[in-house]
Write a protein that binds this DNA or RNA. Structure first.
Lengths: 197, 197
DNA sequence: CACAGCATGTCACCTGGTGCCATCAACTAC
DNA sequence: GTAGTTGATGGCACCAGGTGACATGCTGTG
């Protein structure tokens, strides 16, 4: 028994996405996912640290790509420019994966637990980016704010991308979000806030 | 049996914080928390929707206060100014609770699951703030970015507050973070980003 | 006293998640 | 070819988080 089968991880991901789409995340048990993939629950948990993680496989690659682009920018570039350098390769990574991304986004949007996981993934990414900026000599807090700002732009653009009716280029959506950030921020000089007391 | 006891929720929170501080979050079972509070596991889950939530009771009040301050600002105020209006009452809410906040922060920092929950709470808060801004006629995306930016400043200031050796006023830390955000952003005109390809 | 309502307890049950060991295929060495 | 090794998987017992259904007991109120 237990003949070896290729791409166990990929089959588990496929089975999970299908079942989540069919009956929802909560109504799907790990045992069912494993069965559809021709495996057992125990094996599922050897590939994914928990049930949610099956929807987030690949986020390490995203981080790797983003950090590579960041560290490749000249060291005299501004923090925000360095953060935004990751946008292009990421956009390339996503082009063509819209159907999968949309299905996945629908599943996640329907479940608070999954939204938690998505958020923490983005946050971890922001922390990695921040660390990379600090490595380049940027001050701790400036790095954090730049990283967070870049992530927000990315997040807004991504949400628009999966919600879009026509498959607009991801990169174009990023530029739109970026322009709006500029408008929001530059319209708000620090002096507009009330004096502390 | 089962004589009624006052403030069951408060006793559960106290017992949970104590046990988490003593042996860590993972090494503490819900049954143990309930026992220390003189109750049962079933009752714990009547007061808190899950084990983590016992550390986040009170976040609804934070949201309520913030939104009140926001809606109280004149409608011609800028989005970011409206968001930042919440800083003062929130600072008031926190002053004097530093020991509790610090203990809680240590517990959360030691556990990824709890960090997920904290993040999603902040995100929900950002969404509420965004919704309130939209209600005032701010455009959807500008509202989101303003809310997110305000939350980031709040988050940075809060992290500093609990990490501080001497109990600096929370409000002062907010102003510091705000100044740094201004520096980071205003040093980065949109023109510095690469032209889209 | 009878009754309603509320907080709590009790119990059975499901599922996510893990530790431990058995099994089986493929590969290597002799 | 046989023995041993390695790596992926299955099987199983077990723990803890979480829930539904029902019982119990206190408190107030007519």
């Amino acid at each position: 028994m237990s003949r070896w089968k290729p791409d166990a991880r990929g089959r588990l991901i496929k089975a999970a996405i299908e079942l989540f789409a069919e009956r929802g995340y909560d109504a799907t048990t790990v045992t069912e996912i494993a069965e559809r993939a021709g495996l057992t629950k125990r094996t599922f948990f050897r590939y994914f640290s928990d049930k949610r993680e099956v929807l987030f496989y690949g986020s390490e690659e995203l981080e790797r790509i983003w950090l590579e682009a960041l560290t490749a920018t000249p060291t005299d570039a501004s923090p925000l420019a360095a953060v935004m350098a990751g946008f292009d390769p990421i956009a390339e990574l996503f082009e063509g994966r819209l159907p999968f991304a949309r299905l996945r986004a629908e599943i996640i949007m329907a479940n608070p637990e999954l939204q938690e996981r998505e958020l923490i993934k983005l946050q971890r990414l922001a922390e990695s980016i921040k660390a990379a900026l600090v490595e380049r000599g940027i001050a701790h807090d400036a790095a954090m704010l730049a990283a967070q700002t870049g992530l927000t732009v990315f997040h807004v653009a991504f949400a628009r991308w999966v919600a879009q009716e026509d498959p607009t280029a991801f990169r174009r959506l990023i530029d739109e979000s970026l322009d709006e950030l500029s408008e929001v921020i530059t319209a708000e000089p620090a002096a507009t806030r009330r004096s502390s007391g």
